[in-house]
């Protein structure tokens, strides 16, 4: 029988952020790269994202945000995942970030942390690395 393991990525946006272009670009790029990309839509709660990630059995959660709140969002999502007993799901982040934000995120175990202008190849390689 065919082995059909595909990388499943949840692209998530938490809180009040309308800037969707990044998420939508990633969605189609992931599709073109043979991955299964699931999008939560905008204005999600951390609990909603954690539930969706567990329900969909994804390999990676990709947080997108352009309001400068990624550290707060990541911390809240991590806390909700922990409540569900999930402590080993890789989380990557991207959007508008300060250097300080990146440090804080990395301390939490959130990787990637890509700012505007990051080449797509860098993101894809990173996802393939963390997904397996």
């Amino acid at each position: 029988m065919p082995k059909e393991k595909k990388i499943r990525v949840l692209i998530a946006k938490v809180g009040c952020d309308i800037h969707e272009r990044g998420a939508l670009t990633l969605l189609t790029t992931f599709r073109d790269e043979g991955m299964e990309a699931i999008y939560t839509g905008r204005y999600q709660t951390p609990k909603g994202v954690a539930n969706a990630a567990v329900s969909e059995d994804v390999d990676v959660i990709a947080l997108s945000d352009h309001t400068g709140s990624l550290p707060i969002i990541a911390e809240a999502v991590l806390a909700e995942l922990k409540k569900l007993g999930v402590t080993d799901m890789p989380i990557i982040a991207g959007g508008l970030l300060t250097q300080e934000d990146v440090k804080v995120l990395e301390r939490m175990g959130v990787t990637g942390n890509y700012g505007p202008g990051t080449p797509m190849d860098v993101i894809l390689t990173h996802i393939r690395n963390v997904a397996c």
Binding site: E36, T40, Q44, G48, V49
Partner: peptide, 15 residues
């Protein structure tokens, strides 16, 4: 690959 977008319309049930 695939874009799985049905959840977006059902997001109120996520939590």
């Amino acid at each position: 690959g695939a874009v799985l977008g049905d959840r977006i319309r059902m997001q109120e049930h996520n939590p």
